[in-house]
Design a protein around this nucleic acid. Sequence first.
DNA 1: GATTGGCACTCTCTTCTCGCGAGTGCCAGG
DNA 2: CCTGGCACTCGCGAGAAGAGAGTGCCAATC
Lengths: 335, 335
Amino acid sequence: MLDDRKIDVLRAIVEDFVATNEPVGSKALVERHGLGVSPATVRNDMAALEEEGYIAQPHTSAGRIPTEKGYRLFVDRLSGVKPLTAAERRAIKRFLDGAVDLDDVVRRTVRLLAQVTRQVAVVQYPTLSRATVRHVELVPLTATRLMLVAITDSGRVEQRVVELPMSAAVDAVADLRARLNAKIDGKRLIDVPDLVSSLPDEVSADARPLATAVVTVVLETLVEQPEERIVLGGTANLTRATSDFPLTLRPVLEALEEQMVLLKLFGETADPSGLTVRIGPENPVEELRTTSVVTTSYGESLGSLGVVGPIRMDYPGTMAAVRAVARYVGEILGT
Amino acid sequence: MLDDRKIDVLRAIVEDFVATNEPVGSKALVERHGLGVSPATVRNDMAALEEEGYIAQPHTSAGRIPTEKGYRLFVDRLSGVKPLTAAERRAIKRFLDGAVDLDDVVRRTVRLLAQVTRQVAVVQYPTLSRATVRHVELVPLTATRLMLVAITDSGRVEQRVVELPMSAAVDAVADLRARLNAKIDGKRLIDVPDLVSSLPDEVSADARPLATAVVTVVLETLVEQPEERIVLGGTANLTRATSDFPLTLRPVLEALEEQMVLLKLFGETADPSGLTVRIGPENPVEELRTTSVVTTSYGESLGSLGVVGPIRMDYPGTMAAVRAVARYVGEILGT
DNA sequence: GATTGGCACTCTCTTCTCGCGAGTGCCAGG
DNA sequence: CCTGGCACTCGCGAGAAGAGAGTGCCAATC
């Protein structure tokens, strides 16, 4: 049904349309790509492709544009993502190597990804779930308030204020801190609940309310609410995309400001090649049905990152960039 | 030169234009506002106002729109910002009271401000400069890497990885940690440099490289680079503003993604009333000359917050909202 | 002297028409 | 199965014309 040449034609249509943003006709196709056949032949192929739903024409007498199905086939048949140039690789490395801490790594990654792909970049903080606890600190703020600071080996620091039911003695806090660290230092986050649940029973009766309050917050902070932070950048690139603006741009921007929506983007990032490409309506998020999303995970399933762009997107280039950035970020955070 | 009625006319023009986004003519003016005079009279006044540069007409035969100078006069002559309704106040309070930690306060504030003003909200983290150190922690990550965590009384937590020139013994680190806390715990950040500079000399020779490295990073983290973090939200509201889009929207979005630019926005937020209003070209940032910015500080000069919106902005409403939010944030963080 | 009604004038914006051109579908011949 | 030719379809941009909103100015009025 779809011989090789038809695939070639589809590929050519996608490439041209992505480059020019204009419906592409049979004549222009044979000129710009060395197809070695006449326009009429291409027209026949295009009719077949349209029949199958891979391309469509906006008006009766205009060129063809790819449909979502067409993009999907294009992406699936992609021999391989085109590698970045050496210069690009160096730039990525140089850009990320300057980071001083985790926040900085994430910030730089977002920026880099947005610049390289010229699209909206989305980067998730390394997840806590497979991290181990490096240290827990309790700092008295006032008589009835503590600050809990938890450091994980992924370089992430979580902080939280603990409101106490009663004022606590300094040495009681110190004691609790020591016990807490003895129990969970070096342990995996998943195991924390089991380890700390018995803690209130092990301290003296008058320190029990304190211990209970702290344990509650520890669980909230580290386990119950692993609060996957996600950072966004390059929204200015959205203006680059389409032409019929205000209507389509607003809902996308609004959706991207929702943490929940961003989380969904990384929902099931499980793909053999490691790259997930969601084209238009394939998208899990209603409001982003007008966009395409390319994501991947980095590190040993530490977290995910990706970009959001127009359906009419340079998929090979974007996929290469996302993969390359993810690789470097994984290296840096894996150290 | 400008009698009371002319001022009234200007006010009416500004209000109508802000509401409709269309040039306002003499007839519509007398209808919508009870001016008690005829359109012809208003026309005379408008001619005078135009002569003085407060209003202009886009084309020869259209209504008038305010100039920047007109907006400026309008804002300056504002009797007072119109108070929020009780419901709005309650909403603000309810929204902010649920915050669990500093990050959360800031996030909620941005969101709230964006929603209430329907514009782009900008919130600066509480500055470190007048904070005091609450606690400093050193956590070994590997043999040659430490994580430095500094907690201040403003609820802010700074973290930074310290690369050591050599591997450090655990007890050397513990010793250093104790010395460090003894020196700067409870002290003001401004005083930290003096307090820690002598520290490397006080430890044993073999711990000196360690101490030097740590002290360097402490200074970087807390003093040299007080890295004023700024959070942004509600960019989707930008699409609400103008009509000639892609051209004007892009540079603004790009500018807003620059931390440096945002910092400049809060440059000299010193105004008797506490509210700074920068209209169009008054703006210190080149790229934001097409916008107006309303900022104020919160808390006892803890930080600043504000919104960025179109020059054609509901100034009274925006000013009221910014002030109200700043007040509540100040209260919360001041506790 | 300020205010008002009247009136001619100026533009912009919308709608309409119309030709151009790009691109197609189909057919007959290689 | 490919190719050249040809009639056909529409979207798009350029003018043209009409409508409407608003102005500026002048003479009359309070």
